[in-house]
Simulated scan of single mutants.
Amino acid sequence: MKILVTGGLGYIGSHTIVELVKKGHDVVIVDDLSNAQLETLDKLESITNKRLPFYEMNVTDEKRMEALFIQESFDALIHFAGFKAVGESVYKPLEYYYNNVVSTMILAKLCIKHHVAKFIFSSSATVYGDGVAPFSETSPLLRTTNPYGETKAMSERILMDTAFANKGFNPVLLRYFNPIGAHESGLLGELPNGIPNNLMPYVTQVAKGIREKLSVYGNDYDTIDGTGVRDYIHVVDLAKGHVAAVEADLNGANVFNLGTGKGTSVLEIIKAFESENNIKLNYQIVDRRAGDIATSYADVKKAKEVLGWEAKLGIKEMVKDAWYFEKNIK
């Protein structure tokens, strides 16, 4: 298949491209480089040994996006492009709603107009709000606790309603839990612009001496050690979940959790990183962060049963690969 990957130079998008090319698919990349680096394209071409067409543009530019649809004639779309920092979204809601929701609407419109049936959407476990884990695909979607999560929930509803009104449009909504880790080559990993918003790149930057210390947001949650518990999934496993979704023969709108089904606390991640990499981390406990919940982990039975996919890699591989990537950054 020829597959358009929006946000393809980002963390999850780049790893997914590697797995798509491994399976023989042709990939076209769109990214506005707002949270990605152009050098990632060179690294992707080095890993895949293939030239990958790249277009620098924002997905909300409907005219340019339509010209690309006409030029390339896609069989499928995987939509990663979007702002993704939970904390930042609380303070920049309008930017998040516009960028994340409008881009989804434009892409859905173009897919229908140009007969692209497969639309794989990068959603999030944040759509479950402050409900009770484990979360299954049939869990109620309570009001999300932050604007980022709300943009994902709104986009899901838009895609479901659009699929209902347009037979032959088959979106797959993938609800990620917490991706960490990096490609085994050390060439690809999570490399945010500026100060990291996610846990693992902050951990690795503290370990490398780029940051003085790691802030752990809250130790008074009702969890094993008081710190937040999340379902951490290796980014390569997550990437393979997208390949399974795009290759599946599905009709209408379908929803899948992508996680491991196990929760791990922030302090457990820190201890695993220290143990596996023989490094002591400087961290401090600070106040809770706006928009966070205590515990989130997935029920992953549906993805295994329908897509034939399940996560294979554990926390040890996640923290080792993330550190190997950080050490390779010049």
Rank of each mutant, 00 (worst) to 15 (best):
T260L: 03
D249T: 03
I279K: 10
K262V: 00
Q284G: 11
K240I: 12
G259K: 09
D237S: 06
T264L: 07
N251D: 09
V243C: 04
H234F: 07
N257F: 06
Y283T: 14
N254R: 13
G252A: 01
A253M: 02
N254D: 14
H242C: 15
E274Y: 07
A290W: 12
D292F: 04
V236C: 12
A290F: 11
V235R: 14
A290D: 12
G291D: 03
V236G: 08
L238V: 12
A245Y: 14
G261V: 02
V243I: 13
A239C: 06
V255G: 06
K240S: 14
D287G: 05
D237M: 05
N277P: 08
L258D: 04
S275R: 06
F256L: 15
R289Q: 15
F273C: 02
K240M: 14
K262H: 10
E276M: 04
I270E: 05
A244N: 08
I285M: 13
V243W: 14
V236K: 05
G261F: 03
V235P: 12
V266D: 11
N251P: 00
I285T: 14
E276H: 06
K271S: 02
A272V: 02
A239N: 15
N278F: 07
K240Y: 09
E274T: 01
D292C: 11
K271P: 00
K280P: 08
D237L: 09
H234S: 09
N254I: 00
V255P: 02
F273D: 03
E247V: 10
E268H: 05
D249Y: 14
G259C: 03
K262F: 05
V255N: 04
A272F: 03
V236P: 05
G263E: 06
S265M: 02
F273V: 01
S265Q: 03
G291S: 05
V266W: 09
V246L: 12
L281Q: 10
T264K: 05
S275F: 05
Y283C: 10
N254Y: 02
D237A: 10
A290G: 12
A272M: 08
H234N: 05
N251M: 08
L258R: 15
R288C: 11
A248K: 15
R289H: 15
V266A: 08
V243H: 15
G241Q: 14
H234R: 13
L258K: 10
D292E: 14
G252D: 01
S275C: 01
A253N: 01
V235F: 02
L258W: 06
E268V: 00
L281D: 04
K271Q: 12
V255S: 07
Y283I: 04
L267A: 03
L258P: 03
L250C: 05
A245L: 03
K271M: 00
G252T: 00
V255R: 05
T264F: 03
V243G: 07
A244Y: 06
F256R: 09
G252P: 00
Y283H: 14
A248Y: 07
I269H: 01
Y283N: 11
L258H: 07
D237P: 11
K240Q: 08
H234C: 11
G259P: 01
E247W: 15
E274S: 04
K240E: 13
R289C: 07
L281Y: 11
S265H: 01
F273M: 05
N282Q: 06
I270H: 04
E274D: 10
